[in-house]
Amino acid sequence: MPTDHDRSNIDIAHLRAQHRLMWRIRALEQAALRGLDDKVVLGAIHPSIGQEAVAAGVVGSLRADDILLSTHRGHGHTLAKGASSEAMLRELLGRVGGNCGGKGGSMHIADFRVGMLGANGVVGANIVIAAGAAHAIKLKGEDKVVCCIFGDGAINRGPFLEGLNWAAVFKLPVLFVCEDNGFAATTRTSSMTAGGGPAVRARAIGLPAEEVDGNDILAVEATARAMIAAVRAGEGPRFLHAKTYRLTGHTGVDTAPYRPADELAARRKEEPILRAADLLRAAGVPESEILADQSVAEAEMDAAYRAAFDAPFPGPEEAFRDVQDIGDPAEGAF
């Protein structure tokens, strides 16, 4: 983890870019939440508001041809990997031109063109799939890295053990990232998790693991970069435990009555975009430019939202497209 004096050498232009990316993620999710109010986002939305430094710091440190697997709370990861905001909002609204043609929605968003192999509606399922994606990379002799992000709740599912062990046994190029927001749905994860936590479990399986303040973009990025470099160098899998905090409810409609108001107020002060802005300010970036990052991001997402809003739904024939090559999916029906 970088210490404060490492920060005398901050790359301001890069930090500025990360600040912009975090604002784009937040503005995208704010547009998605607006879609809930407008009753055009019909399925569940799991916002990552307050967790943007993990997406920006980790995913932003990947190469364009690296591979990403994400979760139900994956909008930020997907955008950071390079997916188009308009295609994402179209997907969230279930429209033509969505990344998955409107057939996946928020929980199955994927963009294979940018190496994003999918969010997942099943907690923990992406861990074994990521191990396999890395297995294919190794078989083919490529130097890509797979990044697999999952929540703190996922470490209590079997695929966590099976996937980490697999990656370690076969020495695969994968970075596992536990994005720990303190909650698994409406339950505090700590109340349902025995032992020393994600990194301790990962180390027990033989993966070098580090914990990082997941709201500190510089710390996340520095740690992720070092780990990605080790993974790419063929040293085997690495594990990053990023501690952050979910500022919203579990879903867009969850008001999170189960947490005390003062806890939320305190955590709001530690959120990653504010902290990045403070660093920019301290480095002399004018307030107007800091504010512009927000307004430019909001304008982008506003336009993307309006385009999505006006886009048509896919037709019913899409129900039978891309089911499989063999056999007629409509056979026997109607």
Partner: peptide, 27 residues
């Protein structure tokens, strides 16, 4: 490498193969 042993991890055997198949191999 091509006739690969696996741990007794059925979810990983199948799930890893899903990832490996999506990455262009044919497990």
């Amino acid at each position: 490498e091509r006739i690969s042993d696996a741990p007794i991890s059925e979810a990983a055997i199948l799930g890893a193969s899903v990832g490996a198949a999506m990455m262009g191999t044919r497990p």
